[in-house]
């Protein structure tokens, strides 16, 4: 049995790292702007299409477009928050919820209209080369995704901890008025934060596509898992999101192993219900609501 379990855990961790990356963006936006961002999944889907088309039309490798797609989606996120979400919500947090939901429905349906519901994937031969780790044979693309996604988390953390913009973001998150008093541009800071969150999904898209697929609905899968990750990790907690993402990846993979591939996600939602029941503040959620 362990011959199956170890590879399942490892491959679950590979996927879990990507969940963690998507959730990192979501939890960052929640932690600073205090909004539940429903556009997150749609932006991931958009990023997947961008990476797909760059490959399909220009033959560009998904990994090599990272330096281009990341800043592009940072700008997309920045503009979306500053140009659309902030002005339309007029500062009310309930409005934001509906607006992000509306924008996400619009993006998803436009995608369906223009790109149809066909499932598309790229053909990057080396992505499925196998790498042997602890006796398990894992696709190269998943290993890359794991390593890069895990490296992204400390980078975001270091940015928040050591840069001037990072401390402005932390200041705005907890004490908006105080931030304005020292002359921080709160709207700009919110938008930067939204941009970073969006860049996280763009990176996830680049890492995913070689071993995954894209459809207009693909965002739902991830955003549901990402929400679960955020809740499990403790709303707004970066290390929480990271650990919870990995954990959910493993849970999904093990459930897939024991219950059958198509039921893997049941484990995630079972975990979600159990967390809400026993520890609603999440693994790292002692400061939730602070």
């Amino acid at each position: 049995m362990s011959i199956l379990i170890i590879p399942a855990i490892l491959s679950g961790m590979m996927m879990g790292a990507v969940y963690a990356l998507v959730a990192l963006g979501l939890t960052l936006i929640y932690g600073v702007l205090h909004i539940i961002n429903f556009t997150h999944g749609s932006l991931l889907m958009l990023a997947l299409y961008v990476v797909y088309f760059l490959n399909f039309h220009l033959g560009l490798d998904p990994y090599w477009v990272i330096p281009f797609v990341l800043p592009l989606f940072f700008v997309v996120g920045y503009c979306l928050q500053r140009g659309l979400i902030a002005p339309m919500s007029g500062g009310s947090e309930q409005n934001v919820l509906l607006i992000t939901l509306a924008i996400s429905l619009m993006i998803d349906n436009l995608a369906l209209y223009f790109w149809t519901s066909n499932t598309r994937s790229v053909d990057i031969a080396y992505a499925y080369d196998t790498v042997e780790i602890f006796g398990a044979l894992l696709p190269f693309g998943r290993v890359v995704a794991f390593v890069v996604a895990l490296a992204a988390a400390p980078l975001v953390w270091a940015f928040m901890a050591f840069t001037r913009t990072g401390s402005a973001i932390r200041a705005v998150a907890i004490e908006k008025r105080g931030a304005e008093l020292v002359g921080i541009d709160v709207n700009h800071t919110y938008a930067i934060c939204f941009g970073i969150g969006t860049a996280c999904v763009a990176l996830a898209a680049c890492l995913l596509l070689p071993t995954f697929y894209v459809t207009p609905q693909v965002g739902y899968t991830f955003v549901l898992v990402a929400f679960t990750t955020v809740v499990l990790g403790g709303m707004g907690s970066l290390p929480g999101a990271l650990l919870a993402g990995l954990l959910l990846g493993i849970i999904e993979s093990l459930c897939g192993l024991f219950l059958g591939e198509s039921l893997g996600q049941i484990g995630i939602f079972l975990a979600f219900i159990l967390i809400l029941f026993f520890k609603p503040s999440g693994l790292f959620g002692k400061r939730a609501g602070a």
Binding site: R170, A173, I174, E175, G178, A290
Partner: peptide
């Protein structure tokens, strides 16, 4: 009310 940043 001071409005300092308590988490920093």
């Amino acid at each position: 009310g001071r409005k300092i940043f308590p988490n920093l």
